[in-house]
Amino acid sequence: MKHLLTGTAVAALLAVGLSACTNASTDPGATGGVDVPDASDQVDVATDQAAADLLPADIAKTGTIKVAMDASYPPFEMFAPDNKTIVGFDADFATAVAQKLGLKVELVNAGFDTILTGLAAGRYDLAESSFSITPERQQVVDFVTYLQGGAGIAVRPGNPEDLSMDPMVLCGHKIAAQKGTTQAIEQLPAIRQQCIDAGKEPVEPELFPSQNDAILALNSGRVDGMMADSTAISYQGALAGGKFELAPGDIYESRPTGIALPKDSPLRAAVAAAVTSLYDDGTVATLTKKWNIPDTNLAPNPGS
Results as ranks from 00 to 15, higher is better:
residue 240 A to I: 04
residue 241 G to S: 05
residue 242 G to V: 10
residue 244 F to D: 00
residue 245 E to P: 04
residue 245 E to H: 11
residue 246 L to P: 00
residue 247 A to D: 04
residue 247 A to R: 01
residue 247 A to P: 09
residue 248 P to A: 07
residue 248 P to W: 02
residue 248 P to G: 06
residue 248 P to L: 04
residue 251 I to N: 14
residue 252 Y to F: 13
residue 253 E to L: 14
residue 253 E to C: 10
residue 253 E to N: 15
residue 254 S to R: 15
residue 254 S to C: 09
residue 254 S to L: 13
residue 254 S to V: 15
residue 254 S to K: 15
residue 254 S to G: 12
residue 255 R to S: 13
residue 256 P to T: 09
residue 256 P to K: 13
residue 257 T to S: 06
residue 258 G to D: 03
residue 258 G to A: 08
residue 259 I to E: 00
residue 260 A to L: 09
residue 260 A to H: 10
residue 261 L to T: 10
residue 262 P to I: 11
residue 263 K to R: 13
residue 264 D to W: 11
residue 264 D to Q: 13
residue 264 D to P: 14
residue 264 D to K: 08
residue 264 D to I: 10
residue 265 S to N: 13
residue 265 S to P: 11
residue 266 P to H: 13
residue 266 P to C: 12
residue 267 L to G: 04
residue 267 L to R: 04
residue 268 R to Q: 15
residue 268 R to C: 13
residue 268 R to L: 12
residue 269 A to Y: 12
residue 269 A to V: 14
residue 269 A to E: 12
residue 270 A to H: 02
residue 271 V to M: 03
residue 271 V to W: 00
residue 272 A to W: 00
residue 272 A to K: 00
residue 273 A to V: 03
residue 273 A to Q: 02
residue 273 A to M: 03
residue 275 V to H: 00
residue 275 V to K: 00
residue 276 T to H: 04
residue 277 S to C: 07
residue 278 L to Y: 01
residue 278 L to H: 01
residue 279 Y to F: 05
residue 279 Y to E: 07
residue 280 D to V: 02
residue 281 D to H: 05
residue 281 D to T: 08
residue 282 G to F: 11
residue 283 T to Q: 06
residue 283 T to W: 04
residue 283 T to E: 05
residue 283 T to D: 05
residue 284 V to A: 03
residue 284 V to D: 01
residue 285 A to Q: 11
residue 285 A to C: 05
residue 285 A to I: 09
residue 285 A to M: 08
residue 285 A to T: 11
residue 286 T to D: 06
residue 286 T to P: 03
residue 288 T to W: 03
residue 288 T to M: 11
residue 289 K to T: 15
residue 289 K to R: 14
residue 289 K to V: 11
residue 290 K to Y: 10
residue 293 I to N: 00
residue 293 I to C: 02
residue 294 P to F: 15
residue 294 P to E: 14
residue 294 P to T: 12
residue 294 P to L: 14
residue 295 D to A: 15
residue 296 T to V: 09
residue 296 T to C: 07
residue 296 T to L: 11
residue 298 L to S: 04
residue 299 A to H: 01
residue 299 A to S: 14
residue 299 A to F: 00
residue 300 P to Q: 11
residue 300 P to H: 09
residue 301 N to F: 04
residue 301 N to G: 06
residue 302 P to V: 01
residue 302 P to K: 02
residue 304 S to C: 07
